[in-house]
Amino acid sequence: MKKRSFIKLAGMGAMGALGASGHVPLLAAEGQQAPLKKFEENGVVRPFGGNTVVFHTDKSSPLFLSMLRVQVELQRHFGDSITCLPPDSYHMTLFDMANQQDRKPGLWPSGVPLDASVEDCTKKLAALLKSEPISFPGKVYMKIDPNRPLSLPKEHKPGSQPAFIIPLLPYSSADTEMLRAFRNKLSGLSGIRTPSHDTYVFHTSMGYRIKPMSAETYASFETYYKKWINEMTQAAGKISFDCPDFCSFIDMYQFTPVVALK
């Protein structure tokens, strides 16, 4: 299955095939690189390379199937403003590693030159993870957080592309500690520690807003969101994730496993 096509599963899937864009990112007036867009305003995915550690969502799980159902309504009612991610890409991020945009200490691996290519960065991190005795201790359990505010703000800033996420919480204190300890291991190993390291919100992303919504549309979206969260919370219940993978990506459509951390 090609990564730039929405897949169909059990008669449900996203509609339409989206191709990659070869546009060169714009530069800010100061000569610094402007924030890179992950999508065009028509929903076409743009190049955005990097690497990350994620749990891939089990395609037979209640969470995945409920996300498919939500995606159909999301695409039908709000497809003009939100571009959906292909279900093959559904995952929960455990630890953000490096991306081509954020090249500064704390956001880029300490042992990799700031001007190194993303490909070289991925190779160095993969070699490091293979050489160190680091493995995730076992299955971790999560649940949907129905109380977290909607991730898409009412106001849409020009050029911004906020993600539409389903927020997740560790199911128990043991799960919280398992995730915290492993994130700290990855941080110490890579030299990456973001300002939100200790307050990171676990989630699974479903899409990105690419165009503003009218006040009426946004109000409708809020209503649908509450409905979706309630339905997904009931359907997904206790969510389990197995071994995480260190993955590479060239855009937001596919996260390719490089090293299995088990």
Rank of each mutant, 00 (worst) to 15 (best):
T57N: 07
T83W: 00
P113K: 02
Y90E: 04
M142L: 15
H91Y: 04
S61W: 06
M97F: 15
K130E: 15
P153H: 12
A98D: 15
L94M: 12
G106R: 02
C121W: 05
L74K: 00
V140L: 07
N147C: 11
F55T: 02
L107Q: 11
G106E: 10
N147S: 14
P109W: 04
S66L: 02
D120V: 07
I82K: 00
P105N: 06
G138R: 04
G79V: 01
R103I: 10
G79E: 05
P86M: 00
Y90F: 15
D88S: 12
Y141K: 05
A98Y: 05
T52H: 06
P149L: 11
D145W: 09
L74I: 06
S110E: 08
P62D: 06
L114P: 09
L129T: 05
K104Y: 15
P86F: 01
F136C: 09
C84Q: 03
Y141W: 14
F64Y: 15
T83M: 01
L63V: 08
P113H: 01
S89L: 01
K143G: 08
H91L: 04
L114N: 03
Q75S: 03
S135K: 13
V140Y: 08
L128I: 01
V140T: 14
K104L: 14
T93H: 03
L65D: 11
S135F: 09
V112S: 05
Q71I: 05
Y90R: 00
K124G: 03
D88A: 12
F136I: 03
D120T: 08
K104E: 15
G79H: 00
S151Y: 12
F55K: 03
R76F: 06
T122G: 05
P86E: 03
S81I: 01
M142N: 05
N147H: 14
H56T: 10
P137Y: 07
M97N: 11
S89V: 05
S135W: 00
S151P: 10
L85G: 01
D145K: 02
K154V: 06
R148D: 15
M67N: 12
L63E: 12
K143L: 06
F55Y: 10
K143D: 02
P137F: 04
L129N: 02
H77P: 00
V112T: 13
G106F: 13
P137C: 08
K154D: 02
Y90D: 03
P113T: 02
R76V: 01
Y141L: 12
L150M: 15
K139W: 10
G106W: 10
E119D: 14
